[in-house]
Amino acid sequence: MGDPVPTVKFLGLTFNIANDISILLTCIIVFLFVFLLSRHLALKPKGGQNVLEWLIEFTNGIVKGSIKGNDASHFGLYAFTLFLFIFVANQLGLFLHIQVGQYTYVKSPTADPIVTLTLSFMTVALAHAAGVQKKGLKGYLKDYTSPFLVFLPINIFEQFTDFLTLGLRLFGNIFAGEMLLSKVATLATGGGSWFSYVYSFPIEFLWQGFSVFIGSVQAFVFVTLTSVYISQKVSPEE
């Protein structure tokens, strides 16, 4: 990390090719996964449909855990897609690291803050939009002065901290995981003898397993917090 990144300029916007390829790959994997599981749907489910329905029930459960009532059904698809996307993105770098020359083209896209902050920005934007749609602009703005007018600066500040913590938490976890993996890999190749491979293999192996666990937990946490933020915006004030 901290390596130079391949960039390209297009329409005055700068693109990080490595990020974009990784994101595209993540999207393709998620889509194929869902696509292949959703073939041959039947009223009496079997095989892949069971897995898919279990996943949908799982993410719906997260959403329903914080968003009360009828509103939960509107965010099911977003939570489902978000969970699968972050999950696959977290694991991608653990198995795939394609390096060409000095650039790493395929890694975990969530190990880059710009990606996680974009995801977090989407969540926050969705939460605010849902809040305006649910309560109207007046009700939405009124929430900032609750419980008293004094809380106005704190409430405004909270919107930014929510946005930053949500994105940076995911980034920190995945980035640290990848960093340590690459350090262990350097340990293996930099030892100078075959012996360094022997002792670094179990370390790498263990850390990879732990990273899979962390990646899953972070995907879960991200979706949970997403539904919490949305519920804060759409739920009526007590």
Partner: peptide
């Protein structure tokens, strides 16, 4: 603003992914 392109790319690809999942599976 250096990575504004990335942000757009992520957002758009995520929305496309969401639309595809909605159509195919959800």
């Amino acid at each position: 603003g250096l990575y504004l392109g990335d942000m757009l790319f992520i957002a758009i690809s995520f929305i496309i992914l969401m639309a595809l999942i909605a159509k195919v599976a959800w």
